[in-house]
Every structure is written in C-alpha cells, then in structure tokens.
C-alpha cells in the first residue's frame, strides 16, 4: 500500500466518499501524517455541506406553473433567460440613469428582435396561401435563386434540404424589411403543409445561437441568429416537428 503516492484526484475522491476501501485506507494513512492536508480536505467537505444548506431548500418548494409538463406554449419572448435577467439586473443594481441606459440598450435589441419575428411571420402568412405564385423563383432554378438572394442579402445564404422531414423546396423570394432586403424560402410536404425560412441581416447585440420560440395567431416560429444573419423557420406543424426542422436547418447551415 503506497500511502506516499496519493494523487490529488484520490484526495478529492476521499472528500466525495468515492474511494475503494483499500485506497481509502491508504489515503487515511497519508492524511494522518499530513494534518494540513487533512484540514484542507475537511474544508472542502464543509464547503459541500454549506452548498447543501444554502440550496437544498429549493428541493422542497412547490413548483410554479411555468415548470409543469408538458410545457405551456409561450407568447413571443424574444430575450432568453440571460437577456431578461440582464434587464432586471440593470434595474436592481444600478437603478437611475445607468439602469435606464441598460434598459434602453436591451430594449433596442428586444424591439429589433420583435420586428424581425413580426416581419417573418407576416411574410409567411401572406405567401403560404398562394396557389399560383407562392414563390418568385422556383426550385427548378435553385442555383440561380440562391446566388441571387445571397447577392441581395450581402451574405451567402443556402436553401437547406428538408427532404428527410418530407419537405421539398418550392422556391424563394426577395422581400423588403425596414428598408433592407430579406429572403424567404418556401417548402411543402406531400400533404400540402408549408414551411418558410426567412433570413436577413441586422439583429444587434446578439451573437448566441440559442433557438427562440415565438407564436402569433396559431403560427409558430423558431428563430435564431447565426453570424450576420438572423433566421426564422415558420410553419403550422406543431412544436416538436418545427423544432426538428429548425435543428435540421441549423445543422446544414453550420456543417
């Protein structure tokens, strides 16, 4: 038994009660000879005990309605937890002028996201009922369509393939959005259900790739920001299916 060659990992395993009996005995021999080390490990255990004292009460609290399953559909909620918390923290910590500026900044980002989602939803609702002219350039000219939209957006864009989910590309169109160009691709499945992918530049202060969910009048959208482009995937497919489609799109755009 080599009490002298006790590793740091084993010392932590001793703290956590995860050592085999033989190694535990070896560690204890070592600790008996090194009281300062023993004190260090006991300190670690006190820290763990304090963590439990601080946070275990959360285990016994009744759950709020927001934490029930299945999850409730949420209305447009463009800032995820961190962003909203930042707005709240701005008020709580600094109040007054600083808080107000903080709120303005977060408010601007929020307004830009809301505008983006509104435009994407509006374009979806306007064009999906079209029977004769659902798209401006159809999928038979896909190469031209993609090159044209990339040029107009000023950023390379692709038309993701969603055939594994049963959706075929119908084509796409160019749209105006606050004086900027936006692109819309439209897809359709065998049952005639339609899905649109909307993209444009210009969402500020936001470089994460978290998906957000928005809903308006029964039409659902997942949207996210990826580099210079913001995307929204919209359809009336039910949330799980739309989520799968959004992940498929994201993965193809980020191979």
């Amino acid at each position: 038994m080599s009490a002298d060659s006790v590793s740091e990992a084993e010392l932590h395993a001793w703290v956590d009660g995860r050592l085999e009996p033989a190694r535990r005995a070896a560690v204890e021999v070592y600790l008996a000879a090194h009281p300062a080390e023993r004190q260090r490990l006991v300190d670690y255990q006190s820290i763990d005990a304090e963590l439990h004292r601080l946070f275990d009460p959360a285990l016994d609290e009744p759950l709020p309605d927001t934490l029930r399953l299945p999850p409730a559909r949420r209305p447009v909620r463009p800032l995820m937890w961190l962003g909203r918390a930042a707005v709240a923290a701005g008020f709580v910590l600094f109040g007054g002028v600083l808080g107000w500026f903080a709120h303005q900044r977060a408010g601007d980002a929020l307004a830009a996201e809301r505008a983006f989602v509104r435009q994407a939803l509006a374009a979806h609702v306007v064009y999906i009922p079209e029977v004769r002219h659902p798209v401006e350039v159809d999928a038979s000219q896909q190469q031209h369509l993609v090159a044209w939209l990339s040029k107009r957006l000023g950023k390379p864009i692709q038309a993701p393939v969603l055939e594994s989910l049963g959706f075929q590309l119908l084509g796409g169109r160019l749209l105006p959005a606050d004086g900027q160009p936006a692109a819309q691709f439209m897809y359709q499945d065998a049952g005639g259900r339609r899905l649109t992918l909307y993209a444009r530049q210009g969402l500020p202060d936001n470089r994460d790739t978290a998906f957000r969910f928005a809903e308006q009048d029964g039409v659902e959208a997942f949207y996210w920001v990826d580099g210079d482009l913001a995307y929204a995937l919209i359809g009336d497919l039910g949330w799980p299916m739309l989520d799968r489609a959004a992940h498929a799109v994201y993965q193809q755009l980020n191979p």
């Binding site: 962003g83 930042a86 202060d205 994460d208 978290a210």
Partner: peptide, 13 residues
C-alpha cells in the same frame, strides 16, 4: 450558450 451570449453582451453586465 447563455454565458457565450453574456460575453458579447452590453457593458452594464
């Protein structure tokens, strides 16, 4: 993802 977002967030944070 949130931490990454925070790293690029406005300075008040």
């Amino acid at each position: 993802n949130g931490v990454r977002r925070q790293a690029s967030a406005p300075p008040f944070e």
